[in-house]
């Protein structure tokens, strides 16, 4: 029962990742591209969590946490660069 649910979730999240990638390529505005990248990071965390569930291990926890932190910082850095022309003033 759980195996099927995990497989369905894998498929759904991977499809979500592909859709976000299409938006990343299409754009058209910079805000859309940043948003698409942010969504892809969140979906990547979802995939890592699913991988951990599938293998029944806690090993991937740190990877997911670091992805969450890096994703947030890079989104903010990119936005600040567009807004101010500089990241650290």
């Amino acid at each position: 029962m759980i195996d099927i649910a995990i497989k369905v979730a894998f498929v759904a999240v991977s499809l979500a990742q592909v859709l976000a990638m299409i938006r990343l390529v299409k754009g058209p505005s910079i805000g859309d591209r940043i948003l698409a990248l942010d969504t892809m990071v969140v979906n990547a965390i979802a995939l890592i969590v699913l991988l951990g569930l599938w293998g029944g291990t806690q090993l991937y926890f740190e990877a997911a946490l670091i992805f969450a932190m890096l994703g947030f910082v890079s989104t903010v850095a990119y936005c600040r660069f567009v807004l101010r022309g500089d990241i650290i003033e």
Partner: peptide, 17 residues
């Protein structure tokens, strides 16, 4: 929880597109 999570992650990207 798995189905709900998969559904919402998917809807998020559908909305994005």
């Amino acid at each position: 929880a798995l189905y709900a999570g998969a559904f919402f992650a998917f809807v998020g990207s559908v909305g994005l597109l």
